[in-house]
């Protein structure tokens, strides 16, 4: 019993120290500019103020536009990933398709390729077909990584649908597509949620494609806008932290709500052979 209590104390301390950077971000974002320069720094913002959020997030058209862009890109990526990956995963799980094993290996290998390796040739190739500096180009680039991951996550769910059930649906007059929509999809909802969230989060935080493929200001995701403004912020750390917090909040909310799906997706997607 005492041992359990010791572990609890150590656990709390370790978790608190580990998440100190996250706390420090929120703490700083709620401070006045003058408080940022306090030595030693205040451990809690007194009084807390939303001034930095006002000036840096809502009062800054670049950041506001960046957030909108990020949202559009992440949503587009999620939708396109669902549209492509769900049928593909079903086909790879249930239909007799050749090259299943090599395809799965390829998808797993894609996750090991550095994003820079794709971003550089994409910049040249997309330039030829007019995709540089378009939402479509950024979404396609993000999908190049999210779709293989999504298929890897999704396929086991379709595999777990018993073949007899699908057979029965077909005997009852369903087409293959009908069996897919009416039988396989409903039982795979946890998988769908996982892959949608993982795709969204991946695109939400994405940086390299945005940096390479959004050459103009208008379409840059917020991650790139922050990087560009880093020098402009100088010592306005409270504003930089406010922007960072706004980028982090949707991730934190999704994570709290859908924690088990995300952890399962991120660990399985990377390790399932």
């Amino acid at each position: 019993m005492t041992r359990e209590r010791t572990r609890l104390v150590i656990g709390v301390v370790v978790t608190a120290v580990y998440l100190l950077p996250v706390y420090w971000m929120l703490n700083t974002s709620l401070k006045e500019q003058a408080e940022v320069f306090a030595r030693p720094p205040a451990l809690v913002p007194v009084p807390p103020t939303l001034a930095a959020y006002q000036s840096a997030v809502f009062g800054d058209p670049d950041i506001a536009r960046g957030l909108v862009n990020t949202f559009v890109i992440a949503t587009g990526t999620t939708v396109l990933t669902l549209v492509v990956a769900v049928p593909a995963a079903f086909a790879l799980a249930r239909l007799r398709v050749r090259w299943v094993t090599p395809a799965l290996l390829l998808f797993l290998a894609v996750q090991m390729i550095p994003a820079v390796n794709l971003a550089l040739p994409m910049f040249v190739l997309f330039g030829r077909v007019g995709l540089v500096n378009t939402y479509a180009g950024l979404i396609v680039a993000n999908c190049s990584l999210s779709i293989p991951l999504a298929i890897t996550i999704m396929r086991p769910y379709f595999l777990s649908v018993p073949g007899e059930v699908l057979e029965a649906a077909r005997v009852d007059g369903c087409t293959t597509f009908g069996a897919f929509v009416r039988v396989a999809l409903p039982v795979s909802i946890p998988g769908l949620i996982t892959m949608a969230v993982v795709s969204f989060l991946g695109a939400w935080g994405e940086f390299v494609f945005g940096l390479a493929l959004a050459t103009g200001d208008e379409l840059q995701p917020v991650s790139v806008v922050i990087a560009k403004l880093t020098n402009a912020y100088g010592t306005r750390w409270n504003e930089l932290m406010a922007v960072s917090a706004v980028v982090a909040v949707p991730v934190i909310v999704l994570f709290v709500l859908l924690q088990r799906y995300i952890v399962a997706g991120l660990t399985d997607g990377a390790t399932k052979g």
Partner: peptide
Amino acid sequence: LLMLAWILPTVVGANVWRW
């Protein structure tokens, strides 16, 4: 909670560390 560090966008983590 610890997994937060892993799923936080890198742009957030990197800037917090710089600070």
